[in-house]
């Protein structure tokens, strides 16, 4: 992985709300095809960090570069056009459209046909939409109203939407929150496979340590807005500071990990 070119480079990212330093001087990078987890206790600044990466929030200081290009402070839609897909902690989809139409809207945008007024959207790149839905495993629900999907399938749909613009980087905010344990593993395996095949860099936040330690190539640990550790899953697991602050001394993960019980 280390030979892959740097995809995302974050330098000295800083943001405060009033007097509270949500994120302070955070720097890291993500390479193409690499899966990086951003973890830390509640209030550590994970979401703020995330929101600054795709332009949802503007940093007070610091730079965000995508393939060398400075994208700091650009609006989300501009960041998306540069190849950054995003999924949300609480899914954001279009509930009055069918599952397929949800993807088709993203394809319309990717093809720059937003202001086309005469074509039929339900027929727009139907094949590509179905391919993406198949890829994430909800191909059978294409005609369903999106509002009827189970939560796990909505998460998959979000992934399909995020993949519609052939992204170089995927930002996934708690991709498995609110899912059943088995669905979590499946979704992350799927994500890892797609990332590997298409050489997409993935940065995700997650509270489920099973998911994190099983799928992340590298882990960043955030606490009170600063990066306190960074490294391979093994390094991070052994890091005394991380144990003290976040993983705790109960070592549930270690115990389960030794038994080989994934979930």
């Amino acid at each position: 992985m280390s030979v892959a070119p740097t995809l995302l480079a974050v330098e000295d990212l800083t943001k405060s709300y009033g007097g509270v330093h949500a994120v302070r001087g955070v720097s890291f990078s993500v390479a193409a095809g690499e899966i990086v987890a951003l973890i830390g206790p509640n209030g550590a600044g994970k979401s703020t960090c995330f929101d600054m990466l795709n332009g949802q929030k503007t940093p007070d200081r610091g730079r965000v570069r995508l393939l060398g290009e400075d994208i700091t402070g650009r609006p989300p839609r501009a960041v998306w056009r540069l190849g950054v897909g995003r999924t949300f902690q609480i899914t954001a989809t279009f509930p009055t459209m069918t599952v397929r139409e949800n993807v088709q809207v993203a394809l319309v945008s990717y093809a720059n046909k937003i202001f086309n007024v005469w074509r039929s959207t339900p027929d727009f790149e139907r094949g590509e939409a179905d391919r993406l839905l198949e890829l994430v495993g909800v191909g059978g629900y294409a005609e369903r109203p999106c509002g009827e999907l189970a939560y796990g399938d909505l998460k998959r749909l979000e992934l399909a939407i995020a993949l519609a613009n052939h992204p170089r980087l995927l930002l996934m905010d708690e991709p498995t929150a609110g899912m059943a344990p088995r669905e979590r593993i499946e979704l992350m395996r799927l994500t890892a496979r797609i990332a590997r095949e298409q050489s997409i860099g993935v940065l995700f936040t997650e509270h489920d340590m099973d998911v994190v330690f099983e799928h992340a190539n590298r882990i960043l640990v955030l606490n009170r807005g600063t990066l306190i550790a960074e490294g391979s899953p093994d390094d991070v697991r052994r890091d005394p500071q991380v144990r003290a602050i976040y993983l705790g001394e109960g070592l549930v993960y270690d115990a389960r990990h030794r038994e080989g019980a994934g979930a």
Binding site: A92, T93, F94, P95, T96, M97, E101, Q104, V105, V108, S109, K113, I114, F115, N116, V117, W118, R119, S120, T121, P122, F124
Partner: peptide, 14 residues
């Protein structure tokens, strides 16, 4: 039902 109409609905939905 055009791409524009769907984009408009998209902004309404989310």
């Amino acid at each position: 039902f055009s791409p524009f109409g769907y984009s408009l609905r998209a902004t309404r939905d989310s």
